[in-house]
Design a binder for these strands. Structure first.
Lengths: 237, 237
DNA sequence: CGTTCAGTTTGGCCTAGACCAATTTCAGAG
DNA sequence: CTCTGAAATTGGTCTAGGCCAAACTGAACG
């Protein structure tokens, strides 16, 4: 039923063959080397690599330079349900953690100032973190919070959750959140921070968190496109 | 601040140069041919094509075989806010339309039967459509609805909206919807239906529509990753 | 003036292979 | 036996170029 005038590209045929092969093998199983696959399928290494690259992007395969290409382990898919990262993870029985890259106080400006309804130049706390599931990096997140938040690092350390720290230490309770989701491709920064390949498909999320009517959080996140789903529910009037 | 031991790949440098070039030129402007770019930048056509491919995936460039590569026109970004396609489009001032690929009655089975809480084998109406914004294909959508819906084609034609047709002609009013969003890469089907390139990043959305407590709609959609954003709001307890 | 059709141009797909970087392997030294 | 360092292995990046298909161009023709 998929007959067309154009035959599917050679790399795509190979890709689906490799996908089937990966489905039968157990996670962690090594595939033949790229050179062996090319020779075995009467094709070039370039074509083999294109097929593998897409399967890596879909989370089917993994590859390590100097080691080989293997069937990806069955990683848990993190589902965002519009609460906080650590709450969502806990609800799904996943072990979440964070690596804090930096906490600083900066002047508000641009879109952040506008979203948080702050005067440009007013003090803003910036928290940059890597979010991990089962100790593997899943997302890069930069949160901007109005005002100075002394000892936020300690509060974060103690509670392990930004939302919990905000509430317990500063009396800020996020009651509503609005998320915007779109696609993006990994550049050098994401490659380095999340241990990905160039051009890997990502989901970029921007969140405006509200404490009642008051904007209280403007966060930009980037998640790996595999291993992540976003879920939302809405009532129609 | 992006200094690393590894220099950025050559294709990536070229990609950002082309992005800057495209930002200055007006939409529709032709870029040099791939062969000319390769010669001009002292690189190979393969490298040029990799740079261009990612910019196409980001919606910055367009290319047509036999014609050339040019700066993409400023297309509107459709924002899904969890109501219906036509309602969302209208709210954003966009002209939406649909091309019906097929309407059929099939037996319920698998995940659809489970989601809609139907007996396997019970009658299901299947509506497959291409969704267009300003007459350009944006999404491919397959909706599954419980029961037989005689003359749905006519009702769809008349109202232009599945939700409106359901309500007006069959008394089914979708009051709640739950969407799940994840990434996907374009395969041959999406390439053909949405006029894309192989491997183009997509957003796949599955929606369960409820009429009160009753599951009334199970829809799988695939949107172009550029030109599309998903927006959701949630209240935390 | 419009049509047709062959040639040209341009992107689409693929090959064969070079060189580099990370990892693994393994022989040799201690 | 452990450690070290060279060699082999494997993926990462890039080159140069061939052939195909779609689109465009322009001359010849009616």
């Amino acid at each position: 039923m998929t007959s067309q005038s154009h035959p599917a590209p050679k790399y795509y045929v190979l890709k689906e063959q490799l996908r089937a092969l990966a489905a039968e093998a157990e996670p962690g199983a090594l595939l033949p080397t790229e050179r062996a696959l090319a020779a075995g399928h009467g094709t070039s290494r370039t074509t083999v690599r294109q097929a593998i690259a897409e399967l890596v992007a879909e989370g089917v395969l993994d590859r390590i330079q100097g080691h080989g290409t293997f069937v990806a382990h069955n990683r848990p898919t993190y589902v965002r349900q519009l609460t906080s990262f650590s709450e969502d993870a806990a609800a799904q029985g996943l072990r979440s953690s964070s690596r804090v890259l930096g906490i600083s106080t900066i002047p508000a400006e641009g879109e952040a100032a506008q979203r948080l309804r702050m005067e440009p130049g007013a003090a803003l706390t910036r928290v940059e973190r890597i979010r991990l599931i089962n100790d593997e990096p899943l997302a890069h997140e930069t949160a901007l919070l109005p005002g100075e938040l002394p000892d936020l690092a300690a509060a974060l350390e103690r509670t392990g959750s930004l939302y919990a720290a905000l509430q317990e230490s500063y009396g800020v309770r996020i009651t509503d959140a609005e998320d915007t989701v779109q696609t993006r491709l990994a550049g050098p920064d994401e490659v380095r921070l999340l241990n990905l390949e160039m051009g890997f498909p990502l989901l970029a999320i921007q969140r405006l968190g509200l404490a009642g009517e008051q904007p209280a959080e403007w966060t930009s996140s980037v998640f790996r496109g595999d291993r992540f789903r976003f879920q939302a529910r809405r009532h129609r009037d």
